[in-house]
Computed example of a mutant assay.
Amino acid sequence: MGYKTILVSLNEVGRLPQLLAAATKLGQALGTHVSGLYVIPAVQVYPSVGFEAAPQVFEGNRSFFKDNAAKVREQFEAAMTKEGLAFDFHQVDSRTPIIADEVVAKGRCADVLVVSTTNPDEVTGVERDFVEQVLMGVGRPVVVLPHQGEAKLSLDDVVVGWDGGREAARSTFDALPLLRVAKKVRVIRVDPQKDASLKASVPGADIAETLARHGVKVETQGYPTDGLDEGQALLRCADDVGAGLIVMGAYGHSRLAEFIFGGATRFVLSRLNRPVLMSH
């Protein structure tokens, strides 16, 4: 079963060219329908403080997204038309100021989502934890683009992070439509020498055999971390081979545990330098 509908979230207006490029790349590679989603958030209402009787209302984000709506729609439709893709565009006037809520609701009816991380050094009007909210809530695979750089998505060389866990299995099989059309897929097992059960075996061989039966051009590789955590190791491996996409599970631990103790998902999202497909 392949992807039939891609949903691309367009509220990161400053990353619109990169979002459109990724969506059209996937649409072309898989022959899918592309849905553009643009959310006009509700005004932000803050409770009154001190002796003020009326609550404070902030309309800045809503005004910003209303002002950019026509431009976003025009660029989305032009990009899809240029590539000859089937598409539709949805502008949602939200009842809440949380953009992620609408993306999660709409995204549950898509096969895969395309989103961008939010630049922590800029105020873009999108929630700082937008990607985390979507990953945890949507129940679908999400292709996440970095908030800076070209963010070019390529299926020439794909790195799959594999540890045998639930989230790794979910993301790997969620990514199957992309893995089938990739020129090369590398299943990476980080620090296999630390797992006694893997001695005298090829790390990742079981999942590689399954992927090969699906027609995936796959190879396996153990990757010592040299003291790095798994997220760092995956990014370094992707750098080493020039991967155009990383596939990995998201939040094998709770978000709170990752926030307190660190974790692969949190590290990769904060240091992301290329597209990554994540599933939770």
Score class of each variant (00 low, 15 high):
Thr117Glu: 10
Leu176Pro: 00
Thr32Gln: 02
Leu245Asp: 00
Glu230His: 10
Thr265Leu: 06
Thr172Ser: 07
Thr81Trp: 03
Leu211Ser: 09
Thr81Ala: 15
Leu113His: 10
Val8Phe: 07
Pro141Leu: 12
Val112Leu: 11
Gly27Pro: 03
Met80Trp: 03
Gly252Asn: 04
Ala105Tyr: 08
Gly215Trp: 12
Phe51Pro: 01
Ala105Thr: 12
Thr118Ser: 12
Leu7Ala: 08
Val160Asn: 01
Gly244Lys: 00
Ala29Arg: 10
Glu150Tyr: 03
Ser116Gly: 14
Tyr223Asp: 10
Asp206Met: 09
Val34Ser: 01
Arg236Glu: 15
Tyr223Val: 13
Leu16Pro: 05
His253Asn: 14
Pro120Gln: 07
Cys237Met: 13
Lys66Asn: 06
Ala168Ser: 15
Val138Ser: 10
Val134Met: 08
Gln18Phe: 11
Gln28Trp: 06
Arg166Gly: 00
Phe261Ala: 12
Ala70Gly: 05
Lys4Gly: 13
Leu235Pro: 01
Val241Thr: 15
Val57Asp: 02
Gly84Met: 06
Glu258His: 05
Lys194Ile: 10
Glu127Gly: 01
Leu211His: 11
Leu198Lys: 09
Ala53Arg: 11
Ala42Tyr: 00
Asp226Gly: 13
Gln75His: 10
Ile207Val: 15
Gln75Gly: 02
Ala168Ile: 02
Ala78Phe: 05
Thr32Pro: 02
Phe51Leu: 15
Ala196Gln: 08
Ala78Leu: 11
Arg274Asn: 03
Leu179Met: 11
Ala53Ser: 11
Met136Ala: 12
Phe76Asp: 00
Thr220Ile: 04
Val181Gly: 11
Gln44Asp: 08
His90Trp: 03
